Computed example of a mutant assay.
Amino acid sequence: MIKIVQLRLLLLVGFSLLSPFASATDIVSPWLIEQRTPYNEIQQQTSALQLTPLTSAKKSWRICALVPHLKDTYWTGIDYGLAQHAKQLNLKFELFEAGSYYSVQNQLRQLDNCMKHSFDAILLGSVRPDLLDLYQAPITKPVIALVNRLNHPKVNTRIGVNWYQMGYIAGKYIKLQAKHPVNLALLTGPDKLGGSDLVEQGLSTALKDSLVTVSAVHHADNNRNLYRDELESLLNEQIPDYILGSAVAIEAGVSMLRQHQLTDKVKLISSYLSPAVLRGIYRGKVEFSNDDQVVLQGKLAIDITVRELEGAKAFGDIGPKIQSLYSGHISNEVLKTSLPPADYYPIYRVNTEY
């Protein structure tokens, strides 16, 4: 009990002490990352790498970042890493959010704006993998995929993790825990957008020849109220043994299970991490979460973009190693690599004149 209290205090102190921009000493140690091959494939081989972060850039490059939304701490964590490292390297940086995974035209307009103005490179967190096929104007600047898959012959670098593996790892955890037949309900995110489809594919592979049956699949945009509606519908139909969902869905699930007095009957599995999911693990309300180290992903994206602008070859698929978090198995680095500070508000511009 004392150890649990100490861990909770450490978590709270960590959130309170982290500032929007960490000190320069944070970038001295090498980043532990993975290279994945073949590029842009669903099933890949990985090799461990160490990359020492840049401490300066040859010029104040101007980088445009496009993301689907900033509705949850996944993308605000990405933004935090991007803005932090852009400031450390004295870059000019601007970020634009489409508004949702369904805002294809808005993101195309933002892409066109970045392509036609004085940016040196574009980091594209695409709302759909074929977005560049829908873009009618010439692609005249380097485009690097950010988090989400981007299918285009001119894109040869993606910063992020393999979302098929995110589903596979979560599925293996459930499979190992299931000692008798159990039902699993899914609320993975927008239908076939972002990483949702790949998570479901990886999960399906992991659960082959298991005691786990997928008893329901629900999809919704990353909005807590929408997920509450989906959870209400689900719990009216059945009481599954496990619910696997996006962090936003699992956050809603904690309160919904409490409301229905099902906290001890249904186990919650999150496909990715958020501060509320981490608190849920500490408090015994969430069983498991993947952690793909989004702050590190943001920093790495800026670093790789600068390296390529300064002559490096394409890096292919590169990103952090996916961590597994559950009670008694939480990395001491989680507050540094995976979550923005508790009081962080998204930063849209760094070192710009307006």
Rank of each mutant, 00 (worst) to 15 (best):
L234H: 02
K71Q: 13
Y242K: 06
P240T: 09
Q238L: 12
S103T: 05
T352P: 03
K141P: 08
L184N: 05
L134D: 09
K208W: 00
L89C: 04
Y344T: 00
I322P: 11
G189R: 04
R158E: 03
T55R: 07
W31R: 05
Q259R: 13
K321S: 15
I2Y: 09
Q261Y: 06
L211H: 09
V254M: 14
T213Q: 12
R149N: 11
A86F: 01
N162D: 14
C114R: 02
Q297K: 02
G14A: 07
K154Y: 03
L12D: 14
N225T: 11
A137P: 00
R62C: 11
Q88I: 08
I281K: 06
P68A: 06
S270Y: 13
I330P: 05
W61C: 01
L111R: 01
D112N: 08
L231R: 10
V143R: 04
L123R: 03
L70M: 10
L66G: 10
A314D: 13
N151R: 05
P320C: 10
Y272V: 05
Q88M: 12
I250L: 10
K87G: 01
Q110F: 01
A145V: 08
L134Q: 15
D264I: 03
E287A: 11
I4H: 08
V248T: 15
T55W: 00
S327T: 13
P138Q: 11
V217L: 11
R307K: 15
A249I: 08
G99Q: 02
G284Q: 05
L278Y: 06
S23F: 04
V214T: 14
Y135F: 15
M115D: 03
Y354W: 05
E97T: 13
S60C: 04
K313H: 07
Y326F: 14
K58S: 10
F15G: 06
K267Y: 05
S126E: 06
S270T: 14
G328S: 09
V13H: 10
L132E: 02
K192N: 14
K313G: 09
D133P: 00
K267F: 08
L257S: 06
Y242T: 07
L268E: 13
E251T: 15
R224A: 14
Q6M: 12
T76Q: 01
L32M: 09
T25S: 13
K179L: 08
S338H: 04
W61V: 02
V155T: 08
L66E: 10
K208Q: 15
